[in-house]
């Protein structure tokens, strides 16, 4: 097995996350108690999702510019892994929410935004599945991917200003009850030491999963895609 440096880095980071994440001393903030450790698993999912979906966008644009089917395979596999990260983020978030906010789902803007992202990219997959012609599928789904991404970005900027949030860093002056303000600035130094490796570890894992799927897909279609 040939391990590239970033794969080794991914293993090291995730190993660090799973050990240090459970062992370090965490500050007790509000009603979070030890559940704050979920921070190392839940939050990186969003970094992973946005990162992978952005890569998918980049490859969709590349496809439209070069008409190289390889780029379309990249775009679709990144989108698929992005959806998985989104779903994992929703799951970890809902469980966390159940024990801190009392409900699995409380119409929080970030929950809504994540659910919409999953919906959009599932629609993207439905669209891809509805066509059999390779070139056509690549072209039409790239167009949808680009359009959707640029509509989605304003959404995540607008939504938090419209709906009250329980998440840290929500609407001004409308912080949810019992919610600790755990914004980026107030992150504890020891937590930050685990948090950033966790983010990069999970992101690299996403890239790794996608790269395997891309290789598989390219092999399966090697007669069609040069």
């Amino acid at each position: 097995m040939k391990l590239k440096w970033w794969k080794i880095l991914c293993i090291v980071f995730l190993f660090f996350t799973f050990t240090a994440g459970f062992l370090i001393h965490v500050p007790i903030i509000g009603n979070l108690h030890q559940s704050i450790r979920n921070f190392f698993f839940h939050v990186p999912m969003w970094f992973g999702m946005i990162g992978l979906l952005s890569l998918s966008l980049v490859y969709s644009i590349a496809y439209l510019r070069t008409q190289n089917l390889k780029h379309d395979v990249y775009a679709s596999e990144f989108a698929k892994t992005g959806i998985i990260f989104g779903m994992l983020g929703l799951a970890t978030g809902s469980i966390w929410a159940k024990y801190t906010w009392g409900e699995f789902w409380s119409n929080d803007p970030k929950q809504i935004a994540a659910a919409i992202a999953v919906l959009i990219y599932l629609a993207y997959l439905v669209l891809r599945g509805s066509m059999t012609d390779f070139d056509k599928r690549a072209r039409i789904s790239s167009v949808y991917n680009i359009f959707a991404y640029f509509i989605y970005i304003p959404l995540i900027i607008i939504l938090p200003r419209l709906v009250q949030s329980l998440h840290p860093g929500g609407m001004e002056g409308a912080k949810g009850g019992g919610n600790p303000a755990l914004g980026g600035g107030s992150l504890d130094a020891t937590m930050e030491m685990v948090f950033w490796p966790a983010v990069f570890g999970w992101l690299l894992l996403g890239l790794w999963i996608s790269s395997l799927k891309i290789r598989l897909s390219l092999l399966a279609n090697k007669n069609l895609i040069k």
Partner: peptide, 23 residues
């Protein structure tokens, strides 16, 4: 272009229209 019916249009469009609709 995908030779589909209006159903796929709804699937594609509904998640995208949410920001405008909420506003």
């Amino acid at each position: 272009k995908a030779h589909q019916n209006a159903a796929i249009m709804a699937i594609l469009g509904f998640p995208l229209i949410i920001p405008q609709l909420l506003l």
